[in-house]
Amino acid sequence: MERFYTAESVTEGHPDKLCDQIADSVLDDCLAHDPLSRVACEVLATRGHIMVAGEITSRHVPRISDIVESVMHSIGYSTRGFTIDLLLHRQSPDIAAGVDNPLEEREVIGTGELGAGDQGVMVGYACNETPEMLPLPVVLANRLALTLSSVRKAGLIPGLRPDGKTQVTVEYDEDGKPLRLDTVVISAQHSPSMEQDELLWQLADKVLTPALHDFPPDEDTRILVNPSGRFVFGGPEADTGLTGRKLMVDTYGVFAPHGGGAFSGKDPTKVDRSGAYMARYIAKNIVAAGLASRCKVTLAYAIGKAEPVMVSVDTFGTGTLCADDCLEEAVKLVFGLTPAAIIRQLDLLKPIYVRTAAYGHFGRPGFTWERTDKAKALRDAVE
């Protein structure tokens, strides 16, 4: 395998992540009042404008302007000088019909299923490299970004501002085990009065040291802080943000492919979100069951059809008890893979989504798709 792997993350104040959080806050508001809401919300943020567009079909009418203002203030931005533009309408009746009346129900009356809200490919990944069952560079990059924001909000480094990015490169040994930190990059927005030397010292003490405590830098690790120089101008005033533009930050970085569908702003009938959560749930349980040390699960759906058109398991040659095609059959026995079954198993009709919208959708406690409660059932099915 390659010797060096890199992963990046961004803070909640990054303009793309600002948009993801607004979109998921709109979704959560709808689900809190009407769990059967259909939401596909996109957000664009640029200098002086926040645009919220998409389709909402719900018994609840969200107060979008209030939601935008609340999210921006919670992150640390002011809405003063911003115009909020709304371009919203109801879900297409053709798509709604395919979801409410799936192909299987049209062929066999009374299945009680939901059709997939879109076609597409969803990928889940897990490995035994870290307690989070994610690759180490992904864990560290997200941890650095979260620590950077936490330090800013706690006022531990006066002068920090909301925008920021992190990146971690890890060197691996010949057996594919993390060996050392090669490079750590932090770009942190700051006030114009902060000197670079002071910023470097403060970030090293209050962000790098605690975030990297269990895998610290060595004397040869490169630490790059604001390598472009001053970072005073940031957020949507400096860079246009858009929902769904941090797909690899949301998932597994370079370690697994991405089917292409974004997550934020979409209710769970959209399988590009719920299917990706189920694929991660399956992959994590396979690894937790000791059936593989690395696992990629791929699901593919057709719009308006409930059952997936493809279920694939790839353990990269690390499977322990059986071949990958045997694991695929075990997965079909243990997990329900229709949209309705996924929603039931993972309890996805609750307003939980804004918590996913920054620092990765995977590897953090509190989400149903991070449970390993199916590990025994999977192992039993294989044996």
Rank of each mutant, 00 (worst) to 15 (best):
V313H: 00
V313S: 01
V313G: 00
D314I: 04
D314Q: 08
D314W: 01
T315F: 01
T315M: 02
T315N: 01
F316S: 07
F316P: 00
F316Q: 09
G317P: 06
G317D: 06
G317L: 06
T318G: 08
T318L: 09
T318F: 04
G319D: 02
G319W: 01
G319A: 13
G319H: 03
G319T: 00
T320C: 11
T320K: 15
T320L: 10
L321V: 00
L321S: 05
L321H: 10
C322G: 07
C322E: 06
C322D: 06
C322T: 15
C322K: 04
C322M: 09
C322S: 07
A323F: 04
D324P: 02
D325F: 08
D325H: 13
D325S: 14
C326E: 15
C326T: 14
L327K: 00
L327C: 03
L327Y: 03
E328C: 14
E328L: 02
E328R: 15
E328T: 15
E328Y: 04
E329T: 06
E329D: 11
E329R: 13
E329W: 03
A330C: 14
A330Q: 03
A330H: 01
A330V: 00
A330R: 01
A330L: 08
A330P: 02
V331Q: 00
V331L: 04
K332N: 11
K332F: 06
K332L: 13
L333S: 15
L333W: 15
L333P: 01
L333F: 10
L333T: 14
L333H: 15
L333G: 10
L333N: 14
V334F: 10
V334G: 04
V334Y: 07
V334M: 11
V334H: 05
V334R: 03
F335P: 00
F335M: 13
F335K: 04
F335T: 03
F335H: 02
F335G: 02
G336A: 12
G336V: 09
G336Q: 11
G336F: 12
L337K: 04
L337R: 03
L337T: 00
L337Y: 03
T338H: 05
T338I: 09
T338R: 10
T338Q: 06
P339M: 09
P339A: 10
P339C: 09
A340E: 15
A340L: 15
A340P: 01
A341L: 08
A341R: 13
I342N: 02
I342V: 14
I342K: 03
I342S: 01
I343P: 07
I343R: 08
I343T: 10
I343N: 12
R344P: 00
R344K: 12
R344F: 07
R344G: 14
R344Y: 08
Q345M: 11
Q345K: 07
L346T: 13
L346M: 13
L346S: 09
L346D: 12
L346K: 11
L346E: 12
L346P: 05
D347T: 13
D347R: 09
D347S: 13
L348T: 05
L348V: 07
L348Y: 04
L348S: 07
L349V: 04
L349N: 10
L349A: 11
L349C: 12
K350S: 13
K350Q: 10
K350P: 05
K350T: 08
K350R: 14
P351I: 07
P351H: 13
P351M: 11
P351L: 13
P351T: 07
I352R: 14
I352P: 00
I352Y: 14
